[in-house]
Design a protein around this nucleic acid. Sequence first.
DNA 1: TTCCAGGAAATGC
DNA 2: GCATTTCATGGA
Length: 307
Amino acid sequence: MNSYTIRNLKDFQLDHIFDCGQCFRWNKTGPGVYSGMAMGRRVTMEQRGDSLTVTPCTKEEFDTIWRPYLDLDRDYGRIKEILAEKDPVMARACEWGTGIRILQQDLWEVIVSFIISQNNNIPRIKGCIERLCRLVGAAPEGEEDRRAPVQESRQEPGQAVRQTPGQEGLRAFGANVGLDGDQYPDFPSAQTLAALEPEDLAPARLGYRARYVIETARQVAEHGLPQTADQVLSLSGVGPKVANCILLFGMKKYDSFPIDVWVRRVMHELYGFREEDVKGMKAFAAAEFGEFGGFAQQYLFYYMRSL
DNA sequence: TTCCAGGAAATGC
DNA sequence: GCATTTCATGGA
């Protein structure tokens, strides 16, 4: 299989990039090796020292898809210099999380992923997203759809058969299909999800978030993807924290500073804020980190989680 | 059992 | 306006 290798990478560590909570569809399959699904493609990335090998991948695919996805054209060394000068805590966090890069992910996938992330833990978020993709996601380009047909017997006897436009697209993996990571369906589109009802997503076990995902899918199917912060906040199941994640990870708004339980913890324990003083933390981040707030947040998040 | 997880929406005051 | 409660799910 064709691979592409890029050498002499600086400020690049796959382990930190895929373990700082920004993405959920990459899985570690060996030392420095990750297999996953992004940009509609299933690939494996392997880092050895300052070299990165992507498989399958051509030079053209690397330059047009993975170079921007991995944000390789941004000078993270300079960003760390600027942030490290701010305060000793930030300096340590930059050093600890060196090699972190903010991926340029698909906006729709980011929206759904972070709606699912609310009041949830990272391993279970990954499980929810994987089950959602296996349930209603499209087969990736160039691969045949090996999913089992939808089980018709789910319908209770005597219960009216509900017809929805998306019914024919609904699939479910049978219990005999191994969950061995060998299947990587693409992320379901807004149109696909908009045509479903919350009970259709029950096998994905999103909990009460299924309603938010479908309602947001309908908003996006009708009005298109959000383009402003206000439009992001108007989505169902999107509050201040999730909105900031969407702006940062899906819309390149690098001044966003998502404040979750971990950031609250680090701001409380290492910066001396009261834990409930989210307004104070927000104001501090805006004044202190400014246009680099998103990068600062990622370093702090990773630092606090690994303490 | 109870608590908690990258919170948001509904409800109460 | 602000504080409290509720919302599924599953692991610790």
